[in-house]
């Protein structure tokens, strides 16, 4: 890898800009995501910035179990984020639809629609876990630096497929977990 690519790798790891999107969440994960940016957790030390426009973002943070109404919206916003990009699913809802499973208003989980790079399970996950997930996603972006975009097929292998959802409220089955189109990296809270 030449010097420019190494610099690009390093910069991508150190400067993840987020766009936050709610796909029908109960607002619990949204509050925790905002908490991770507040002075107590101070995610800006990692260069994290919450951006208002998806055009500026590198990492799309999606909360919620993906309702039917929001499917087209998340696809549109994913298209608006310029590459290279990563998707972080925050909470158990986007991973498995959580307690809303089998609801007829849902079209989840998230990885039926978008290639998810990092799952941050929890109901809601702690801000520490969210920051860890964002850092992992920034690492994935850095790995993509050397490769030519688009590189949607480049995914980090799943660490442990059995623990896609570790919340106690969730009764998700193994079929739900294996329905993932793309393997993804785990972040344990």
């Amino acid at each position: 890898m030449n010097l420019w690519n190494r610099l690009m790798c390093f910069s991508r790891r150190r400067s993840p800009w987020l766009f936050h999107m709610n796909s029908g969440s109960c607002n619990g994960c949204d509050i925790e995501l905002i908490a991770s940016l507040t002075p107590r957790y101070d995610a800006e030390q990692l260069g994290v910035r919450l951006e208002g426009s998806p055009r500026h973002a590198d990492i799309l943070c999606i909360t919620g179990p993906v309702t039917r109404n929001s499917v087209q919206a998340i696809k549109t916003v994913y298209g608006q984020v310029c590459g290279p990009k990563a998707v972080v699913a925050i909470g158990s809802c986007p991973a498995t639809t959580n307690v809303f499973i089998d609801s007829r208003t849902l079209d989840g989980p998230l990885n039926r629609h978008l290639p998810v790079d990092v799952f941050v399970p929890g109901c809601p996950p702690r801000p520490d876990a969210i920051i860890q997930g964002i850092a992992a996603a920034a690492g994935i972006l850095a790995e993509r630096a050397a490769k030519r975009w688009p590189a949607e097929s480049v995914m980090v292998p799943m660490a442990d497929p059995e623990s896609a959802c570790d919340c106690t409220k969730c009764d998700c089955t193994k079929e739900d977990k294996s329905s993932a189109d793309t393997p993804a990296r785990e972040v344990q809270p």
Partner: peptide, 14 residues
């Protein structure tokens, strides 16, 4: 070095 990293990263985006 944050603004520098931001600048370099943005140069590498599509």
């Amino acid at each position: 070095m944050q603004p520098f990293f931001d600048f370099i990263k943005l140069l590498g985006k599509t």
